[in-house]
Design a protein around this nucleic acid. Structure first.
Lengths: 229, 229
DNA sequence: TCAAAAGTGTTAAAAATACACCCATGG
DNA sequence: CCATGGGTGTATTTTTAACACTTTTGA
């Protein structure tokens, strides 16, 4: 570092991830159980300190890999939390991220700390350490807002899904009931779903599977098309 | 700090503000000229180090007060920039904020450093220090997006304004021409503008002044109304 | 043949778009 | 009286919203 390097007390900087996944049609949140003080034994968001030579983005990915081993489908920065008293040990500023995991990536891989990680149903969350409950609430709101105008919902679904699954997911994300026929019309008008010649069995009539056509989406987006559901 | 306090190298944390104002119908950006190295003499976003006992929000407000003395009308966190090499002196993570200043607050008050601050037209910006050009670009995009679904535009206008001013501002923010009659219909339907019995003189027919009815907006918002322009 | 979920079409209301002229003032 | 910018209405198209029955399968 050059002669003019900064000399002053510095806060610690962490990254924390709010990771959502979909399982059995329920929205799940990934948490880890804290080992040390403070809040030992309590559940918290996966995350940790940013190393001096890695970007914030790299730091979240690394921490998530180390602590849980889940496979990320989508990741974006959420907000930075910096209240002076949010960590009892001293000044810790946390850059929070919002992440989505596809159903195939839900498994907690054998990793350093993955035995302490677990998925919780979004409305059966335990008490959380630090200000993590606030962070989760912010993330949940952001996810609902995002779902309206960006095709993030598809990140939570399997590659091949039924229209009923898609609708149920959107009802979950938006917290509102949707009309089946109107929903299908809207989806059809987007022209981003490729119907497959495969069907799911099940109780009742088999449902046709669809696939999200990412290439078509990116093409449409470039031409100034706006996704909206 | 307790025995379990963190011991490890820490990045520095700064806040930077992208401050927009409106003057003569042009969007202006507030910059300060750097005194010391690196980038001495170059223009940069106002900002500085976060003190150990202040929130991030307090830190931006303080820095803006100290460096420019402008009166803020609106402030929201934008994004946190943390590329390891974004500051030549070492690891500096910056929490960037997006701020708007009303026409009444544009004056650079006599303050510690306000003599180094200046307003620049948004498309006549000088070269900026660090990654500040990227931050400004991100902020500009956010402002355009935000203007569509939140009444932030009004923060940039004087308390009493004409519909022509409002339309010109939205054309500026959105980067698109709008039809005068349709725009006025849309605005009228929102029911958030109070027409006043005052008129601006000028070349041509005098224009009626209007006022943004913040109370009505907050009432409507609570009832699940969505602002959109 | 019954239960269960998939799939489909029409109508009415609201919103978006395109478009051209008259109005009030100052010089 | 003319130049300047303010202000207004209508017709068309598109989008949204409300609403109920038929289809296909497995048990």
């Amino acid at each position: 570092m050059a002669e003019y390097s900064y000399r002053h007390p510095r806060p610690s900087v962490t990254v924390d991830a709010v990771v959502f996944g979909l399982e059995q049609g329920r929205l799940k949140l990934l948490l880890i159980q804290r080992g040390g003080e403070p809040f030992a034994g309590q559940w918290a968001l996966p995350g940790g300190f940013v190393a001096m030579d890695e970007s914030l983005h790299d730091a979240v990915r690394r921490e998530l890999q180390e602590e849980t081993g889940v496979r990320l489908a989508w990741l974006e920065q959420l907000y930075t939390y910096g209240a002076p008293d949010r960590d009892p040990r001293g000044r810790v500023i946390s850059v929070a991220w919002l992440a989505l995991v596809s159903p195939r990536g839900l498994d907690l891989q054998a990793g350093t700390d993955s035995d302490r990680a677990a998925w919780f149903d979004e409305d059966e969350l335990p008490a959380l350490a630090f200000d993590h409950a606030d962070i989760v609430a912010d993330a949940r709101r952001r996810l609902a807002a995002k779902a309206r105008y960006q095709p993030v919902g598809f990140e939570l679904l399997p590659v091949r899904f039924t229209l009923a699954q898609l609708q149920a997911l959107y009802e979950l994300l938006l917290g509102a009931e949707l009309d089946k026929r109107n929903f299908r019309k809207k989806v059809a008008r987007l022209g981003l779903l490729a119907p497959l010649d495969e069907f799911t069995p099940g109780p009742g009539r088999p449902a046709r599977l669809h696939r999200f056509d990412r290439a078509a989406y990116e093409r449409a987006e470039r031409d100034g098309f706006d996704f909206e559901l």
